[in-house]
Amino acid sequence: MQKIIIYSSSLCMRALLEGLLYDCGAEVCVATSRQNLFDRCAAERFDKVVVGETALFMEGCDTVERIRPCGAREPEILVFAPDITEECVMSLLERGVNQYVSLPVVPARLRRKVFGV
């Protein structure tokens, strides 16, 4: 079974992502803070990390290295955020994010992207 962790600094965004990814045959966890996300990624093996904001990757911290210790290529990182500029999307991809999905999103399309179903 796939293991997915969700993070956003906004309570409502966490709840939204958790609800949209509900009951898809995967184990979905929620990180309540940045440090909680990094600690859990270091302690457990996740297949996907779903982040509900871009600020985590834009503030100079080594986010991707802390999510993927030892230079691994997993977990896959998906970022969901409102429409942003092409430059910002390119910056995210250069930092190691695998996919960027702009909001608003069609629920079925989101589930296909995350779970491939």
Binding site: C12, R14, G19, L20, D23
Partner: peptide
């Protein structure tokens, strides 16, 4: 917290 719970319930309903 209550608002977030409503968001979660509504998005579950919207999704599945």
């Amino acid at each position: 917290v209550r608002r977030a719970e409503y968001v979660r319930r509504i998005s579950i309903y919207v999704s599945v």
